[in-house]
């Protein structure tokens, strides 16, 4: 199993709970906004601590409340692509891309800067500041930054939601190529059925009731 997630966490008045087993490929968490899809990704990334449960990715236990295991985010090797890009505003594109790459154990790196730049078509952006990028450009850089950190798996939180139709198509193509060529398991969050049906190999419907 690529993803084995069984977590619960109280957030204010709401209770976020999810049980999921997925064989790999692109696993989509699908459901309306407000059901805690992003919270699940944050728990897998280690940015939010579940009240109880267990998270295993590719055989490695990231969190196990009962066993007292809680790896800090920097040791989980998650390539997290956020909804809003979240590029570092004080670093140029190249330094954003290399931020995680420089921190990664050389043995864990599986992509070079040249490869990522080629793969995403962002060679002309390397010297730019994040605030000068369009939404689509910023999202490609954010994906590149995540890939370059040598992740064992990817987390994508609505990576298309802030883009117009043409850019959505373009980034969707990038995600398909990551899914098909890079072979890293992806946990993907979206509220868009068409998007999920096109991209996902496994769909977890969170509905409003679950």
């Amino acid at each position: 199993m690529s993803f084995e997630v069984d977590v619960a966490r109280r957030l204010g008045d709401a209770q976020v709970a999810l049980r999921l087993r997925s064989p790999g490929g692109l696993t989509a968490l699908f459901g309306p906004s407000g059901v805690g899809k992003s919270s699940v990704l944050n728990m897998v990334a280690g940015l939010l601590r579940p009240d109880r449960g267990r998270i295993v990715v590719e055989g490695e236990v990231l969190f196990d409340r009962a066993a007292g295991i809680d790896l800090p985010p920097e040791r989980r090797r998650a390539g997290y692509v956020f909804q809003d890009g979240r590029l570092f505003p004080h670093k140029r594109v190249k330094d954003n891309l290399l931020y995680g790459w420089r921190l990664a154990d050389p043995a864990n790196r599986w992509m070079s800067l040249e490869h990522a730049v080629d793969f995403l078509g962002i060679g002309h952006l390397l010297g730019r500041w994040p605030r000068t990028l369009s939404g689509g450009e910023a999202q490609r850089v954010a994906i590149g930054r995540a890939l370059l950190s040598g992740p064992r798996f990817l987390l994508m939180d609505e990576p298309l939601s802030s883009l117009d139709a043409a850019r959505r198509e373009e980034i969707m193509g990038v995600i398909e190529r990551i899914r098909d060529h890079l072979k890293r398991p992806i946990l993907y969050v979206s509220h868009d059925r068409a998007e999920v049906e096109r991209l996902a190999s496994t769909i977890v419907d969170l509905g409003s009731g679950s």
Binding site: N42, A45, G46, L47, P72, P73, E74, R76, R77, A78, G79, Y80, F82, D84, R86, F88, P89, Y99, G100, L103, A104, R145, A146, S149, L155
Partner: peptide, 16 residues
Amino acid sequence: QRLEGAARTLGAGPAR
């Protein structure tokens, strides 16, 4: 603080 979270997922410990 979400930028700090992003840095953590990219491999940076709290001090870095």
